[in-house]
């Protein structure tokens, strides 16, 4: 049918292309212009204002630190979960269902859940107090306890964001026929060798997708941080939000937005390059 009317495929994808062009490309161009102009003329004044701000270096450092800690831990946990669940026979679906519950929780709600655990009158302090570990309420989320705050945010992010990595990795693991592992086992590979030399290379595409997705999302971390640390733990998106809403300075907010986009693009390119997937070497 499409042979006679070659324009039909184009017609069918037109709405989505128009939609994206209108609501993505136009704002993108506007944002870039907003970031790189001052009073209608090209200028780096906004960028200068951003980098000289007291919170800029801290927010860059915090965002990168969080990404560097959270993403590898999430990948490791997801790999462990995926490998474990592949050995489970009955009840596998139920376990996967429970593991993916965090997927259905919004990140602000997740932040509030962890806030109720970790705030001064929270569950964590109650537990420590009843065990006699602490004599009075301890503070975990204040600017005086930056390490505890960092750990709390990292744990909350890991809890919230591992499920999506696990879903991608389980899908990848399901694509690897069990005969590959059996053959490796018969020819003398132990469990670790099988994992490193057979399983991991074979789930490379899934690993790549999971890494890109999780890293981009990690650079955009905001709601969990905002709920737990407020402004005690500045991150890039949080600063963009503050410049936009508190300071009403849309231009500096736009520079932050562009910076986050550049970092995400760079990370994606690095992954695509470093974890190059050669279709020739796939099952």
């Amino acid at each position: 049918m499409t042979q006679n009317r070659p324009w039909i495929p184009y017609l069918l994808i037109l709405p989505s292309v128009a939609f994206l062009a209108l609501l993505f490309v136009v704002p993108l161009v506007q944002t870039i212009w907003l970031a790189l102009s001052d009073n209608g003329a090209p200028s780096l004044a906004n960028a200068e204002r951003m980098v000289t701000d007291i919170n800029f270096t801290r927010s860059v450092r915090n965002t990168f630190l969080l990404t560097i800690v959270v993403v590898p831990v999430q990948i490791a946990i997801a790999l462990a979960m995926g490998t474990m669940v592949s050995k489970v026979g009955r009840g596998r679906e139920t376990i996967l269902w429970i593991w993916t519950i965090p997927l259905g929780i919004s990140d602000l709600a997740a932040g509030l859940v962890w806030l109720s655990i970790l705030q001064n009158t929270g569950y964590f302090n109650s537990l420590l107090f009843s065990l006699g570990v602490i004599g009075r309420q301890a503070s975990w989320l204040s600017y005086q306890t930056p390490i505890a705050l960092f750990i709390a945010i990292a744990v909350a992010e890991i809890w919230r964001g591992t499920a999506i990595v696990m879903v991608i990795i389980v899908a990848g693991l399901n694509q690897v026929p069990k005969e590959f592992k059996e053959a490796a086992e018969i020819f003398g590979a132990g469990p670790w060798t099988r994992f490193w030399r057979i399983t991991l290379p074979l789930i490379r595409p899934a690993l790549q997708s999971a890494l890109i997705l999780r890293t981009v999302l990690a650079f955009e971390v905001f709601a969990v941080v905002y709920a737990l640390g407020g402004r005690n733990f500045p991150v890039l998106v949080g600063e963009a939000y503050n410049w936009q809403n508190q300071n009403q300075n849309y231009s500096v907010a736009a520079v932050y937005a562009v910076l986050i986009m550049i970092i995400s693009l760079a990370a994606t390119l690095i992954y695509l390059k470093a974890l190059k997937v050669d279709p020739e070497r796939l099952p």
Partner: peptide, 14 residues
Amino acid sequence: GLAMVFQNYAVFPH
């Protein structure tokens, strides 16, 4: 001390 040949070959693609 054995080796095996599988039905679907199980030759490592990578």
